[in-house]
């Protein structure tokens, strides 16, 4: 059995910024428990001597010359905005502080 609990799922919901109902927390707890039991087997073969692969095809030093290209226009930038004011995006009050 894995360690998935309703409290953990609720915490993950906060980290992922998804408001979860109690019913969803309960359902997800059960489902994640089963899924995690099934995928935890990766640790069976992931011994310390095996290197991790983050990129399927290894490349390095891919750069862009420092030459400006036309940016989006302000109109393009704002065209999908749920709400805009003075050329900027509007969000409701912010409680927490920046990181």
């Amino acid at each position: 059995m894995s360690e998935i609990t309703p409290d953990l799922v609720r915490h993950l919901g906060v980290l992922a910024r998804i408001q979860l109902t109690d019913e969803e927390v309960e359902r997800l707890t059960g489902q994640l428990d089963v899924i995690v039991d099934n995928i935890a087997k990766v640790s069976e073969v992931a011994t310390p001597d095996v290197a991790a692969t983050s990129h399927p095809i290894p490349l390095e030093n891919v750069f862009r010359p420092d030459v400006p290209q036309a940016p989006l226009t302000q109109q393009q930038a704002l065209q999908n905005a749920p709400e805009a004011e003075d050329g900027r995006f509007v969000v409701t009050a912010i409680l927490g502080e920046e990181q």
Partner: peptide, 25 residues
């Protein structure tokens, strides 16, 4: 998303995401 958030969270990263990357190798 919840599963992925879990797999990356501190304390679980090595067992899950880290191991999965080794399986990839």
């Amino acid at each position: 998303i919840i599963l992925g958030t879990y797999a990356l969270s501190s304390g679980y990263y090595d067992a899950y995401y880290g191991s999965a990357q080794k399986v990839r190798t």
